[in-house]
Simulated scan of single mutants.
Amino acid sequence: MRLILLGPPGAGKGTQSTRIVERYGIPQLSTGDMLRAAVTAGTPIGLEAKSVMARGDLVSDDIVVGIVADRIEEEDAKGGFILDGFPRTVAQAEALDAMLAKKGIELDAVIELKVDEDALVGRIEKRAKDTEARGEPVRKDDNPEAFRIRLDAYRSQTAPLSDYYRDRDMLHETDGMAPMDEVTAAIETILAAHAA
Rank of each mutant, 00 (worst) to 15 (best):
A186H: 03
L5H: 00
I149E: 14
L29W: 02
A192G: 10
A196H: 13
G104L: 07
A153M: 04
A185V: 09
I105K: 14
D33L: 04
Y154W: 12
L161K: 05
Y24C: 04
T89S: 14
T18I: 07
D142M: 09
R127V: 07
R168L: 13
G25R: 12
I67R: 00
D181M: 13
E136C: 01
I72R: 00
L29K: 03
K114D: 15
A128L: 06
V52P: 05
L171V: 11
A178D: 08
D167P: 06
K103C: 09
L3A: 03
R71K: 10
Y24I: 07
D84E: 13
K78M: 14
G80P: 04
R71V: 01
D116K: 07
K50P: 01
G42T: 08
A153R: 06
K50C: 06
I124Q: 01
I63A: 02
F86H: 05
G79M: 12
L113A: 00
L100D: 02
A159P: 02
K103T: 11
R55C: 01
T40P: 01
T184L: 04
E173F: 01
E145M: 10
K13C: 07
D108R: 07
R23K: 15
T40I: 13
D163M: 10
D163G: 15
E132A: 15
A49E: 03
P27Q: 10
D130M: 09
T31N: 07
E125Q: 14
A153W: 00
V59W: 03
E106W: 03
L35N: 05
F81G: 00
V90M: 10
A95K: 14
R134L: 15
A192E: 15
M177R: 06
A186C: 06
A133F: 04
V138L: 05
D57I: 07
M1V: 15
G25W: 06
G85A: 09
I4G: 00
T43E: 12
E136W: 02
D61N: 12
R168T: 10
T43G: 10
M180R: 14
E73M: 13
V68H: 00
A185C: 04
L151M: 14
I105M: 14
G85D: 07
S162T: 12
G85F: 04
I63E: 03
K114P: 00
I187M: 05
T189N: 15
I149K: 15
R168M: 09
D181F: 03
I82L: 14
H172V: 04
P87M: 03
G32H: 06
E117F: 06
K126L: 14
Y154D: 04
P160A: 11
T189G: 15
G135R: 03
M170N: 03
A49C: 10
E48W: 02
M99P: 03
T158D: 05
D61A: 06
